[in-house]
Amino acid sequence: MDNNDLHKWISHRADMLFVCVKSLMLMTVGIAIAVSLNRFSDDGKQALSVAVGALGFYLWFLSFGAVMDIAAMRKDMSEELQGSAFGTQFLKAPFPIYIAVTTLVMLGVPVMLILLLNS
């Protein structure tokens, strides 16, 4: 893969991660505002809990795929790029830790929001 194409694809997947994090933060703020207004029936809380769980899982699915794609792109780097300062650091990046943190955040926040809604 050409270095320019590799850069574009990594940038696209990083943008996708950013959108997932922004969506998670907007969902958190929205749920916090909704809970502070306290105008839910029990059925409304249950329906919102299901929606938060589904959206949280979807955001995790997207972010997990983005991190996995970025990790896989290490194999597509040219010899020239691998020898650069960026390439050597990119090859050493701890992607298993990134995946663990992404999973913890993207699934943990919706779980905490569901607990907040049902408390």
Results as ranks from 00 to 15, higher is better:
3 N>M: 03
4 N>Y: 12
4 N>Q: 14
4 N>H: 12
5 D>A: 07
7 H>A: 11
7 H>G: 03
14 A>V: 05
18 F>T: 06
21 V>Q: 01
22 K>V: 12
22 K>N: 12
23 S>A: 11
27 M>P: 05
29 V>F: 10
30 G>V: 05
32 A>F: 04
38 N>T: 00
39 R>A: 11
40 F>R: 00
43 D>W: 04
43 D>R: 01
45 K>F: 03
48 L>A: 04
53 G>Y: 11
54 A>K: 15
54 A>T: 05
56 G>C: 05
60 W>A: 09
61 F>A: 02
63 S>V: 02
65 G>A: 11
66 A>E: 01
68 M>A: 13
69 D>V: 01
72 A>Y: 00
73 M>E: 10
74 R>Q: 15
75 K>N: 02
75 K>E: 03
78 S>H: 04
79 E>S: 03
79 E>Y: 00
80 E>W: 08
82 Q>E: 08
83 G>N: 15
84 S>D: 06
85 A>Y: 06
86 F>Q: 10
88 T>F: 05
89 Q>S: 13
89 Q>D: 11
91 L>Y: 09
92 K>T: 07
93 A>T: 14
97 I>H: 13
104 L>P: 13
104 L>M: 15
106 M>C: 15
106 M>I: 02
111 V>M: 14
115 L>W: 06
116 L>C: 04
116 L>T: 15
116 L>Q: 13
118 N>E: 05
